[in-house]
Every structure is written in structure tokens, then in C-alpha cells.
């Protein structure tokens, strides 16, 4: 009868968000997307967000007007990189974004690349 009154005292108020990340990922595995995206894979929007889109997708399309790395998208959206790659994979499959892969993994960098970097750093 009065149980509800008794526990008003020790209840903590919730901050944050009632949604959990798996709902945002809609149950898809981040493992598949992982092969396509590195932290420094560059993302560029190729279409405008639409009103019926999942808000996270819309946000990615909106902020990637100029190239952004996956790490930056993750930081702006405040979502873990693995979740961001799931969302990016959706957009990539729908050809809504362009994906610019970093240099091939597990290979020594080309001398020309290193020269370019050294040159660039010198101008800093």
C-alpha cells in the first residue's frame, strides 16, 4: 500500500539516456564492419540526411561534409568507434558516403609517403 512511499528516499535520479548502444547498432555485428574501417579511414558524405533516417546516420552525413576520420566521427558523435563503424557500414552499403582507406596495413610505408610527411612537418 505504501511501499512506493518508502523507497522514494534511496532512489537515485538517472542521468543520461535510456537507450542502449545495441539498439543503436540494431543488433548488427561490429566485426564485419571492422575489416572496412580503420580509425583513420576518411569518410566523406555523398548525400544529404533524410527525415526518415536513423538520427545517428543523419548526424554522420551532416558532419562529414568535408573528410573526417572514423576517430573524429566517433568523437563528435560520442559513440564508440566500433558502433560508428556499424553505422558507417550501413551508409557505405547505401552509397551515401565515400570511404578513403588509409595506407595498406602491415606494410612498411613507402619512402615517398615518408618524404611527404617529413616535408609537411617541416612546414609546421
Amino acid at each position: 500500500m505504501s511501499a512506493a512511499d518508502q523507497d522514494t528516499v534511496d532512489q537515485d535520479w538517472d542521468e543520461g539516456n535510456p537507450e542502449r548502444l545495441y539498439v543503436i547498432a540494431r543488433g548488427r555485428s561490429p566485426l564485419a564492419a571492422h575489416t572496412t574501417f580503420d580509425l583513420v579511414t576518411l569518410i566523406i558524405s555523398r548525400s544529404q540526411p533524410t527525415p526518415t533516417m536513423q538520427p545517428e546516420h543523419a548526424a554522420i552525413l551532416r558532419i562529414c561534409g568535408s573528410p573526417l576520420s572514423v576517430a573524429e566521427v566517433s568523437a563528435y558523435l560520442r559513440l564508440p568507434a566500433s558502433l560508428v563503424t556499424v553505422l558507417l557500414a550501413d551508409l557505405h552499403a547505401e552509397k551515401r558516403i565515400e570511404v578513403r582507406a588509409p595506407i595498406p596495413k602491415a606494410a612498411l610505408p613507402a619512402r615517398s609517403l615518408l618524404e611527404a610527411v617529413i616535408h609537411g612537418l617541416q612546414r609546421l
Binding site: L21, Y22, A25, S29, S82
Partner: peptide, 17 residues
């Protein structure tokens, strides 16, 4: 914490659910 490790991240999502 494990946002960059897709395998761990996926497992955590399952536990979370």
C-alpha cells in the same frame, strides 16, 4: 573502453542486452 575492439565490444553489447 573497448570501443576500438569490435570483438569485445560485440560481447559487451550482448551482456548489456
Amino acid at each position: 573502453r573497448h570501443g576500438t575492439d569490435p570483438a569485445v565490444f560485440e560481447d559487451l553489447l550482448r551482456l548489456d542486452h
